[in-house]
Design a binder for these strands. Sequence first.
DNA 1: AACAAGATTAACT
DNA 2: GTTAATCTTGTTT
Length: 196
Amino acid sequence: MAGSPDLREVLSGPVEEVAPRLLGAVLRHGPVALRLTEVEAYGGTSDPGSHAYRGPTPRTRVMFGPPGHLYCYLSHGIHTCANVSAGPDGHASAVLLRAGEVVDGVEAARARRGAVRDHLLARGPGNLCRALGIRLDHDGVDLVDGEVTLCLGDPVPAFDRGPRTGLRQAADHPWRFWLPGDPTVSPYRRHKSAAP
DNA sequence: AACAAGATTAACT
DNA sequence: GTTAATCTTGTTT
């Protein structure tokens, strides 16, 4: 079986409840597997920080679709970032995968990332995609039985939450979730010109 | 058809 | 702490 049977059911809840549930889950693409340590929730037309804020567009179509699919986009012309669509079909929301610990295929991940410490292999959304080999064309992949899969674990015993990284809009919305003290969690950076 | 901005990263002062 | 790299998307002529 590729993925937990109840993955889609769990993901169909409110995105701010789904996001922390993804901590500790295992994301796999080919030989490389990752245990998620840091995520951010983006949701609906009431979240100014979300790509879907101004309604559906060709790029954000996956966010408006059923839960359990990969939403990939290119950031700053260089970096691919991956999200998991959440919420019921038609409700735009997704969880950005920001960091993880490589638990399988470490050699393949090292080959893609070059000479960095192991805990940095998948730290930061762009680096996570590089380590895992996720590209823009993985947009829309079904995480239950697609090329990239997600397996939920037991809910983590504890997590921290705080404002999301690098946003200009809604910079203080506390929808970033991470495992306390985990070395693979990326450092918080506020956007240059975020509103005070 | 053209333009400005961006859920980032790495390199540099 | 600051900045360049690089290109897609959404918005505006």
